[in-house]
Computed example of a mutant assay.
Amino acid sequence: MRGTTVEHLLLPGDVVRAAVAVSVVVGGATFGGPAAALFLLVLGGALVPRLLGLRTVLDVCFGSCLLLAAWAALLRWYEAVSWLDLLVHAVCTGLVAAVGVLALVRSRVVAPWASGWRRAGLIVTTTAVGALGAVLWELGEWAGYTYVDDEIRVGYADTIGDLAFGLLGALAAGVVIAVWRPAQDSDDAR
């Protein structure tokens, strides 16, 4: 494969993105236009790790979690398994927070850890990005319920629970990133 770079190879995350693309068609044909729109949103999100060149494990976990969350909603798994909604909010929000912080670092909106970030600052920033993601997710659920499909489950208790578990997931992601990041921070190396 002379002259081929990693960017041109099919990566495991691309398999997940292909599954999302198939879901746009299958979900749309089975459940209608709102389902197709949901999977198009998931596809847009699943493209972010590829565009940022993030590590394969994060790429696959991120896209798979978004895909699972969408199918679980359409197939009413959240109604069948009472704790699944909170688990998905925690895991997906944590992954959104991780990808979001890495996107901010790569685009130089925030300073990378190699520039002197302390672990606590990284945890707080990741948690804040996740909190924003959780709020936007809940606004999306409300908008979906209000304007698209009144079967989307919303309500005070659901929203507060989703936000709480999303925040916990974002905090956990911040801790993981702070612990696993490269030991390039000269303040931490002392």
Score class of each variant (00 low, 15 high):
M1W: 04
R2H: 06
G3K: 08
G3R: 09
G3F: 07
G3P: 07
T5L: 06
V6R: 13
H8E: 15
L10R: 13
G13Y: 14
V15Y: 15
V15W: 15
V16I: 14
V16Y: 07
R17V: 15
A18S: 14
A18W: 15
A21F: 06
A21M: 13
A21L: 13
S23D: 10
S23G: 15
V24K: 00
V25H: 02
V25D: 01
V26E: 05
V26R: 03
G28I: 13
G28V: 08
G28D: 12
A29M: 15
F31G: 01
G32V: 06
P34A: 07
P34M: 09
A35V: 01
A36Y: 08
A36F: 10
A37Y: 11
L38Y: 00
L38F: 02
L40M: 14
L40S: 04
A46W: 06
V48H: 12
P49N: 09
R50V: 08
L51T: 11
L51Y: 09
L52C: 08
G53S: 05
T56V: 11
G63F: 05
G63H: 03
S64I: 04
L66R: 04
L66C: 10
L68A: 06
L68D: 02
A69H: 02
W71F: 02
W71H: 00
A73L: 06
A73D: 07
R76K: 05
W77D: 04
W77L: 14
W77A: 11
W77M: 10
Y78K: 04
A80I: 01
W83F: 08
L84Y: 04
L84E: 00
D85Q: 07
L86D: 03
L86V: 05
L87W: 04
V88Y: 01
A90I: 04
V91W: 01
T93K: 00
G94Y: 03
V96I: 06
V96A: 06
A97R: 02
V99R: 01
V99C: 03
G100R: 03
L102Y: 02
L102F: 00
V105E: 09
V105F: 07
S107W: 12
R108Y: 09
V109F: 15
V109S: 05
V110P: 00
V110H: 00
S115A: 14
G116Y: 11
R118M: 11
G121H: 10
L122D: 06
V124L: 12
T127L: 12
A128E: 14
A128R: 09
V129I: 15
G130D: 04
A131T: 10
G133R: 13
V135W: 07
E138L: 14
L139K: 11
L139T: 11
G140P: 11
G140A: 09
G144Y: 03
G144M: 05
Y145P: 06
Y145W: 14
V148F: 09
D149Y: 03
D149S: 02
D150G: 13
I152H: 05
V154G: 04
V154D: 04
V154W: 07
G155W: 02
A157N: 07
D158W: 02
D158M: 00
T159D: 07
D162K: 06
L163T: 10
L163H: 08
A164N: 08
G166Y: 03
L168I: 01
G169I: 07
G169C: 05
A170Q: 08
A170W: 10
L171P: 01
A172W: 12
A173F: 10
A173R: 02
G174D: 09
V175D: 03
P182M: 12
P182F: 11
D185F: 04
D185E: 12
S186L: 13
D187T: 13
A189G: 15
